[in-house]
Amino acid sequence: MKIVQGIKKPNESFIIKDAVALKEPLVLVFGNRYMLESNQIYDEVNTLFPDGHIVFGTTSGEIIDDNVLDGCVVLTAIEFEKSSILVKRSNVADFHNEDKKLGERLIAEFPKENLKHLFVISEGSTVNGSALIEGLENMENTSFGLSGGLCGDDDRFERTLASYNENPKEGEIVAIGFYGDTLEITSSNYGGWTSFGPERIITKSKGNLLYELDGKPALDLYKTYLGEKADELPKSALLYPLSVKATEDSDPLVRTILNIDEVENTMTLAGDVPEGSRVQLMMSSVDDIANGASYAAELAMGGRKNSPELALLISCVGRKLVMDQRTEEEIEEVKAVVGDNTVISGFYSYGEMAPFSGQDSCKLHNQTMTLTLFSE
């Protein structure tokens, strides 16, 4: 595996570190939405890697090595020497918000034989990540890993962009399939958030749209808890996500709010919030988040046969808001576990995709650090 990385700052060209020639590389380009709106961004990257498979995604912060950047673009180009990749894309507009069907159509484009892992870069503004995952996992007689994340737009929640081999645009979902017997790919996630306050029951919801808690308008209740911070919704919701437990035996999932509808008094969350689920508010601290990142890295490293050569990190924008000027500490914690020889890239997101530890089925998470580790 050969890896080249670069950084582009506003009004500057890419600065490529340790540039070497790569053959048909996978080129991951994560960046600030305003910078990826440039009509020249694809041509600029394509000039650097004319035979590359170029995947773009907007962010709420860019990760490269143990640094967290804002308002920049980070590039990671990977040549797999013994393995192969296949990239496919689709758009939510073509499926009329039927995200499960989109996932089913997308996974059907990937040959089943030797598919080791699917890494997904999804638009993050409107997609129901739970439904998308359910569709992507609808592939019979095949076992493959699934991880990835929802693109971000800092804390603006205006629009997110992604693309494959073209300028980034709205509504895109890009899936990267990894094939090869020599590939070792592991993924994990962990949060570090603590529940508090009364437990309530979801009495009315549809998919990722939340109407009522305990028979009362959910948005009104949430605003009551937020107090003065309610005026800053949906940004302020990142500091107080919801713990959602669908059944007594299920692992709780963390959900953050993507949008609110003042007229309908509803909240749109990044993933499903089933009726009958028990929910609580959550909060965290800088130390809890840093420790959570370290534990996520330990889970990803557990049972690996080989040291990872590449680590793709997707962490939630809510964690970044809590960490503030200490954000890089959670990346440093990850690096301390995966090792100095592992190339690190990634971004801050509106949602993370990974299975719970010890499970095969992928879930949509919020407020977690998610790692996907690669070696050949």
Rank of each mutant, 00 (worst) to 15 (best):
G52E: 00
A296E: 03
F178K: 06
F119L: 15
F144E: 08
T247A: 12
L161A: 10
G271L: 09
S188I: 04
P10Y: 01
D231L: 07
C151S: 14
L233Q: 12
N114I: 05
K235T: 13
K245Y: 05
Q40I: 06
Y190V: 04
N11Q: 11
D214I: 14
T370G: 04
S187F: 08
L233W: 13
V273W: 12
M282T: 10
K169L: 04
L313D: 00
T368W: 00
K235W: 08
D220I: 15
G149V: 12
G135I: 05
Q367H: 03
D261P: 12
F14G: 06
E333F: 13
V334T: 11
K305N: 15
N138D: 13
G31D: 04
Y179C: 07
V322C: 00
K335G: 09
S125Q: 06
E199F: 02
L312N: 10
L269E: 09
F95R: 02
E44D: 15
A175N: 04
A270W: 00
F30I: 08
F196N: 04
S143C: 07
M369H: 08
E199L: 04
D360M: 04
S205M: 09
H365G: 11
K363D: 00
E137G: 09
G6D: 08
S195D: 14
D66S: 14
S143N: 13
F56W: 02
R278C: 09
G303Q: 01
Y225A: 14
L239F: 06
I201S: 08
L36Q: 11
E137L: 13
V29A: 03
S284E: 13
C72V: 03
L313W: 01
I289D: 13
R105S: 13
N97T: 02
K9Y: 11
S195G: 06
Q359R: 14
E212M: 13
E376N: 12
G145H: 10
Q359W: 05
D99L: 03
A218K: 12
N189Y: 02
D65Q: 12
K223L: 08
E329V: 07
S187R: 09
T203S: 13
I85T: 05
S122Q: 01
M301G: 00
Y211K: 10
G302D: 15
K8G: 08
G227E: 13
L321Y: 01
A336M: 02
V87F: 02
F110T: 04
S13Y: 00
I63R: 00
N167L: 13
A270M: 15
T256R: 06
N167H: 11
K169E: 14
A230Q: 08
S188M: 05
T58M: 01
R326I: 05
G192T: 06
V127M: 14
T372K: 07
R89T: 13
E199S: 15
T58A: 01
E104T: 06
N67K: 13
D70A: 11
G215K: 08
E62H: 03
G52R: 00
Y190G: 03
S205Q: 05
N189A: 09
E330K: 14
E352M: 04
N97E: 05
D251M: 09
D154I: 07
H365V: 12
R255H: 09
D340G: 10
V279M: 08
V343Y: 11
N32F: 14
L313S: 04
N167G: 15
Y350V: 11
